[in-house]
């Protein structure tokens, strides 16, 4: 009896491990290639010895891609657009979930339906609009576009979670004399920390790693951003794989750290809030 019980768990552990290794294989290849020279990447894809180890790629990539300027711009874009996204969508989610009115249900369906629009088709019209407003070549163009395109999904998330909170909270707040906005701000929003964390991670990563918006709306000399700077390693005649991987590793480290930090919050908290559509 005992032996039989041990076999299945062991198989499952083995399966998990095997698939995890398969998932991590490209990442592993990619990270160790960042530390290798060009020939070594080509001839020994998976092998890594102490002799091969070199920081050259990182040093070259760092100077070539204007790392600090790129990080600064990308961080500004990500931070401000996340602020907008979280702030606006949590308000919208609260209203749609807690205030009963036909107009809000219609708005909700409208917002959620907007999730299906592909960005690639709308790039040129947006470029024209931004040019007319005068924000072309400006960080604010990216910020506004990123926040707007993330709003539907974020509102979708928030509405679901706001619905799941009990109504007594609201009534208690009303008794205390809170207006609608205060109820939202003081009572509901703090309880949604895990959803906020999920939203930040999901949308934040999208904005941080975005290439299309930054390359279409910004002047890469004036306002470099991370992913646009990484693209420069793929020239027409020579692709500097090692350097580009080193560059991408340097881009990914900040969000990886943020993810680890926020991971605790949203998994534990999402459980408490319960995932309901």
């Amino acid at each position: 009896m005992k032996r039989k019980k041990k076999v299945v768990p062991l198989l499952m552990e083995g399966l998990i491990l095997f698939i995890t290794i398969a998932i991590l294989l490209p990442v592993f290849y990619f990270v160790i290639s960042a530390f290798k020279s060009r020939e070594d990447i080509l001839f020994y894809p998976l092998k890594m010895t102490v002799e091969m180890f070199t920081f050259d790629n990182f040093i070259i990539a760092f100077s070539k891609m204007k790392y600090f300027a790129s990080v600064k711009n990308t961080a500004i874009i990500t931070g401000v657009s996340l602020a907008f996204t979280v702030g606006l969508s949590s308000m919208a989610g609260f209203v749609i979930a807690r205030v009963q009115a036909r107009r809000f249900q219609i708005s909700y369906s409208f917002l959620v339906a907007l999730m299906v629009i592909p960005f690639i088709g709308c790039v040129i019209p947006l470029v024209i609009i931004m040019n007319r407003i005068g924000l072309y070549n400006h960080l604010w163009a990216c910020i506004l576009i990123q926040s707007s395109w993330n709003l539907p999904f974020a509102t979708f998330l928030y509405t679901g979670f706001m619905k799941s909170l009990p109504g007594e909270l609201e009534e208690a707040a009303m008794i205390d004399g809170c207006s609608l906005f205060k109820t939202y701000l003081r009572v509901f929003l703090p309880l949604q920390a895990p959803v906020t964390a999920t939203c930040c991670i999901r949308c934040g990563i999208g904005v941080w790693n975005d290439y299309l918006v930054s390359s279409s709306f910004l002047n890469s000399a004036k306002s470099p951003t991370l992913m646009v700077s990484v693209k420069k390693f793929f020239g027409q005649y020579v692709n500097e794989y090692g350097q580009s991987f080193a560059a991408v590793v340097m881009c990914s480290i900040p969000i990886f750290l943020v993810f680890i930090f926020l991971q605790k919050y949203f998994i534990k908290g999402m459980a408490a809030g319960a995932v309901k559509g």
Binding site: P26, V27, N209, Y211, M227, V230, V248, C251, S252, F256
Partner: peptide, 13 residues
Amino acid sequence: ACWYIPALIGGVA
């Protein structure tokens, strides 16, 4: 965390 890493790396690379 391991399973989420693929989503963290930028699309270009």
